[in-house]
Simulated assay, not measured.
Amino acid sequence: MTKTDPTPDESLTYRLKALSKIADRMSSELSRGKLGLPMPEAMIIGVLGAFGPQTVMDISRRSNLDKSQASRTTETLIGKGLLSRTASDQDGRSVIISLMPEGRKIFRKIAPMVEKRDTELYRCLSEPEMDALRYLLDKLLESHGWQAE
């Protein structure tokens, strides 16, 4: 192959997926070890703690889970007494999901866990390299319609 014919493992999507798998594995290990929860449950608690009460559709979007997984996981967390469900004031057909006190206790453990994971992911980069990577990723994401909240 010539330099103009990159191999599949040189593509941006391949590399982003590989990095995503590494980050997911690290998150899953930390989530189970520190929180005693599967990663999707920890992600939903993290989203609700960071953004406040919201619909399952919003939770799905913010946690990068498909709607059915977000819905099932939310139901599991409600069953564990970590989340609650109330009718929406704006739309009688939808419900709002909120953290219960035990869910808030877990949320307080998530930020240090995420910081530890990110520190581990970035440890091979200098501060300017981390800034450049964040800038470039934001630029790519924004150019395709993604907006930080």
Rank of each mutant, 00 (worst) to 15 (best):
residue 34 K to A: 07
residue 70 A to N: 00
residue 14 Y to H: 15
residue 13 T to E: 09
residue 42 A to Y: 04
residue 93 R to E: 09
residue 51 F to E: 10
residue 80 K to T: 06
residue 48 L to Q: 01
residue 39 M to H: 11
residue 59 I to R: 01
residue 76 T to W: 04
residue 92 G to T: 13
residue 14 Y to G: 05
residue 12 L to W: 13
residue 85 R to M: 11
residue 44 I to P: 01
residue 33 G to C: 05
residue 25 R to C: 07
residue 81 G to C: 05
residue 10 E to F: 09
residue 68 S to D: 12
residue 80 K to P: 02
residue 72 R to D: 04
residue 71 S to C: 02
residue 87 A to C: 09
residue 81 G to M: 03
residue 59 I to Q: 00
residue 25 R to T: 14
residue 66 D to S: 07
residue 94 S to C: 06
residue 34 K to G: 03
residue 70 A to Y: 00
residue 22 I to P: 08
residue 13 T to W: 15
residue 52 G to K: 10
residue 34 K to D: 09
residue 78 I to R: 04
residue 32 R to A: 05
residue 46 G to D: 07
residue 86 T to Y: 07
residue 78 I to A: 07
residue 71 S to Y: 10
residue 55 T to E: 08
residue 32 R to N: 08
residue 90 Q to C: 08
residue 32 R to L: 14
residue 85 R to Y: 06
residue 51 F to D: 01
residue 53 P to C: 05
residue 75 E to A: 10
residue 65 L to Y: 02
residue 79 G to V: 00
residue 62 R to I: 05
residue 57 M to I: 15
residue 59 I to G: 00
residue 91 D to V: 10
residue 70 A to I: 05
residue 20 S to I: 12
residue 31 S to L: 02
residue 91 D to R: 09
residue 46 G to P: 08
residue 24 D to M: 14
residue 38 P to G: 02
residue 69 Q to P: 01
residue 33 G to N: 11
residue 96 I to G: 06
residue 15 R to P: 04
residue 28 S to V: 07
residue 45 I to S: 02
residue 94 S to Y: 09
residue 62 R to Y: 11
residue 21 K to W: 10
residue 45 I to M: 03
residue 38 P to N: 09
residue 20 S to C: 14
residue 71 S to P: 03
residue 53 P to K: 04
residue 18 A to D: 13
residue 8 P to I: 12
residue 28 S to P: 00
residue 57 M to F: 10
residue 52 G to H: 10
residue 26 M to P: 05
residue 83 L to N: 02
residue 41 E to S: 09
residue 92 G to M: 08
residue 27 S to F: 14
residue 70 A to M: 08
residue 22 I to N: 13
residue 45 I to K: 02
residue 36 G to Q: 05
residue 40 P to V: 03
residue 42 A to H: 04
residue 45 I to D: 00
residue 76 T to C: 03
